[in-house]
Design a protein around this nucleic acid. Structure first.
Length: 323
DNA sequence: AATGTTTCCTGATCGC
DNA sequence: TGCGATCAGGAAACAT
């Protein structure tokens, strides 16, 4: 369930709850939660302890916490050697101090990257909160305040530290800009989509084409745009793609305004609050119930090992189908 | 028995 | 024609 609106709700919660704070300790309870941190759990923890979180960012369904560079003890130590430094050691000391960043250079630093997978939660809770059944990682802060906890029932999510690339961490670099990104290039996405040879829903779910869209919002946007999921991308007009992308944006913004979609307690904000967008879903999960636009019964098809919901009247099956 | 996601692998197609 | 690069689709990863 965590698609773009849900991840954005979590990001905002982290912005309020952990930005500005310094990590005191990290406890990895389940190694699978850091499987994408190839150097392992001990390295993961060691990289994080003592670091201050300076920002919470997101692209598509990925989010990351920017970490202030660690204090360079070598550079801070008083440079008052007993003996006057020889030229050689002075040169060594000069090398140890961090090079000045060129003006206007994007902020450098490591990032703590998170993907929630299907059931991951990042919760900011009082330390006395009983451990959740699926608690995977606990972060304690130096101020003794609320903890950050990664809880994940199905363990498809995970965290990792990427070093030296806070601006756009390497593990996120392959993800396309999402429709809520101010720099989202609609013309580019439109042309790329029309060059594909696949079904429109498949294209919508491809995070390297447009990010943040998952099964729920794909179905909702396709219904709003009156397009069938199996419509071949190469037959889409520019206007149709424009309409579709507009619907994606509208649906996501509406979901964001009510805290995202929660079918059960598997998705909650960082404060543990469920979103209310389930009430506003027009087709997703509504098989057999009337289309809110025309009254025809919503239909459910197996598609890509999951489900697709459509209104047979509003979204007629294309003559030529692709998926 | 159903499930929101990503990655990886394989086979097909593209283009030089 | 041959080869590497890119694209498309399917399966696997897991717990309730």
């Amino acid at each position: 369930m965590p698609e773009l609106p849900e991840v954005e709700v979590v990001r905002r919660g982290l912005e309020r709850g952990v930005v500005g704070r310094v990590i005191a300790s990290v406890d990895v309870h389940h190694p699978r939660a850091v499987r994408r941190h190839l150097a392992g759990a001990a390295d993961f923890s060691a990289l994080l302890v003592g670091r201050r979180i300076t920002a919470a960012r997101r692209r598509g369904k990925y989010l990351w916490l920017v970490l202030q560079p660690p204090v360079d003890h070598a550079a801070c130590a008083p440079v008052v050697p007993e003996e006057p430094p020889e030229e050689e050691s002075a040169a060594v000391l000069a090398e140890m101090s961090p090079p000045a960043l060129p003006p206007g250079h994007p902020a450098q630093g490591d990032a703590l990257i998170a993907h929630l997978g299907m059931s991951g939660q990042l919760l900011v809770v009082p330390p006395a909160t009983p451990d959740q059944k699926h608690l995977r990682i606990r972060f304690v802060f130096t101020d003794g305040g609320r903890e950050l906890r990664f809880v994940d029932q199905r363990t498809f999510g995970g965290l990792a530290v990427a070093t030296g690339e806070a601006d756009l961490p390497a593990p996120v670099a392959h993800i396309a800009r999402d429709p809520l990104d101010p720099a989202f290039d609609e013309r580019l996405v439109t042309e790329r989509m029309r060059r594909r040879r696949t079904g429109v829903k498949r294209a919508l779910l491809d995070q390297t084409l447009v990010s943040g869209v998952g099964n729920i919002y794909a179905d909702e946007a396709l219904w709003a745009a009156k397009l069938h999921y199996a419509r071949p991308t190469e037959t889409l007009t520019r206007a149709e793609v424009g309409r579709l992308l507009g619907c994606v944006r509208t649906v996501m913004i509406a979901a964001l305004e009510v805290g995202g979609t929660s079918f059960d307690r598997l998705y909650v904000s960082a404060d543990g609050v469920s979103g209310l967008f389930e009430r506003s879903l027009q087709v997703y999960g509504r098989a057999g119930r009337p289309c809110t636009r025309c009254g025809d019964a919503v239909r459910r098809d197996a598609f890509m090992n999951r489900s697709s919901f459509t209104c047979p009247t509003c979204q007629p099956h294309p003559r030529r189908a692709r998926w």
